[in-house]
Design a protein around this nucleic acid. Structure first.
Length: 315
RNA sequence: AGGGGUGUAGUUCAUCGGUAGAAUAAGAGUCUCCAAAACUCCAGAGAGGGGUUCGAUUCCCUUCACCCCUG
């Protein structure tokens, strides 16, 4: 018997958080955050983290579990999320994965094998160095030699992925292109319902702009300033998050506040767009278009419940 | 009201008497260890009307719009 798993995702600022609480209350759920920034303590405003009082007693996992100088990535997410699910099932509750990081959701849902690197031999760092010295094309040529298919699929300019492909070959002796083929075939071992909350594009963009303004009013600048004073710098993964990245530039004096805000809004819009692109190609997705429900959350919830019943996730 | 100036892609700016380039926004997409990251692709324009010319976005006239100065 497959375990139940509910996923509630969608582009940033679409209203996932509010809906997730309503849903959790109805079905005795617990929430697992699939968000690469909300894991960090002290990054509350910029990551639009749920406030304690908003949780309404619903248990949340994977929020505030790291300090900003610590690294976080899919592999860690996968491990921690799995552990969280164990706990939730043991509590006889239904897990709801809520968050906008599609890659994380995929890793969990399909239990993707990332063949963890056993050896810490600095190979990746060496490749990064090579990329800087000899250029992106050189690395891409290297990849062509060991894994032509991957080389064909990855654009030479996409250094990050070229490096990962080379690293994968270095560590496992196998081609990442073949590995990815296999992983793609995987079926989820959950009885899942994958909801993507979406809305009219224009409305969404407006909401993003408003939310950024609200964040600034709520003290985003002070939040970033405090992080900066604690010694965190823009090369940290956490500080590359939207809001932090842009305001760091402002605080360092490399742009005006207006420019930083403009960039933040724009980048957030771009991000939302990319999220939608991601969900579009994810299979078995249930799209929930807010504009079709006149932004009436009660109606939306009814639809959610209906879909869950259909799938036998709830009675 | 008079004088001057400017009108080119959604925006900012090029170029040119002979099929108008870019940046940026918009749109589409890739993604299997930094994913709020990284990367790719694409469409779109010379205000309206007239004239000169083989040919006008470019030169001339005019209307309109905007800006500046004077009153």
């Amino acid at each position: 018997m497959k375990q139940p798993l509910i996923i509630l995702t969608g582009p940033t600022a679409v209203g996932k958080t509010g809906l997730s609480i309503e849903l959790a209350k109805r079905i005795n759920g617990a929430i697992v955050s699939a968000d690469s920034m909300q894991v960090y303590r002290g990054m509350d405003i910029g990551s639009a983290k749920i406030k304690e009082e908003e949780k309404q007693g619903i248990k949340h996992y994977l929020i505030d579990i790291l300090d900003p100088e610590e690294d976080f990535n899919v592999v860690q997410f996968q491990a921690r999320a799995k552990a969280a699910l164990e706990e939730i099932y043991a509590d006889r509750k239904c897990p709801i994965v809520v968050g906008g990081t599609g890659f994380y959701i995929q890793a969990l849902l399909y239990n993707i094998d990332f063949t963890k690197s056993e050896k810490e031999d600095g190979y990746r760092e060496a490749l990064e160095q090579t990329a800087k010295e000899k250029g992106a094309d050189f690395l891409h040529e290297e990849l062509k030699k060991v894994d032509p298919k991957a080389a064909e699929e990855i654009h030479p300019n996409n250094v990050k992925r070229v490096i990962r492909a080379l690293e994968f070959y270095h560590e496992s002796g196998k081609k990442i292109s073949e590995h990815n083929e296999q992983e793609k075939e995987k079926e989820s071992f959950f009885n899942s319902a994958y909801f993507v909350l979406n809305d009219d594009r224009e409305k969404m963009y407006q909401r993003i702009d408003q939310r950024v303004d609200q964040m600034l009013q709520d003290g985003l600048i002070q939040e970033v300033k405090a992080l900066k004073e604690r010694g965190f710098h823009s090369s940290m993964v956490s500080m590359q998050g939207l809001g932090y990245k842009e305001l760091f530039e402002y605080l360092e004096g490399s742009c005006t506040l207006d420019e930083a805000v403009y960039k933040l809004k724009r980048d957030t819009r771009h991000f939302a767009k990319r999220q939608i692109t991601w969900f579009r190609r994810e299979k078995d997705v249930i799209w929930l278009d807010k504009s079709a429900y006149e932004s009436n959350d009660t109606k939306l919830l009814e639809e959610l419940m209906l879909q869950l019943k259909k799938r036998g996730i709830i009675e």
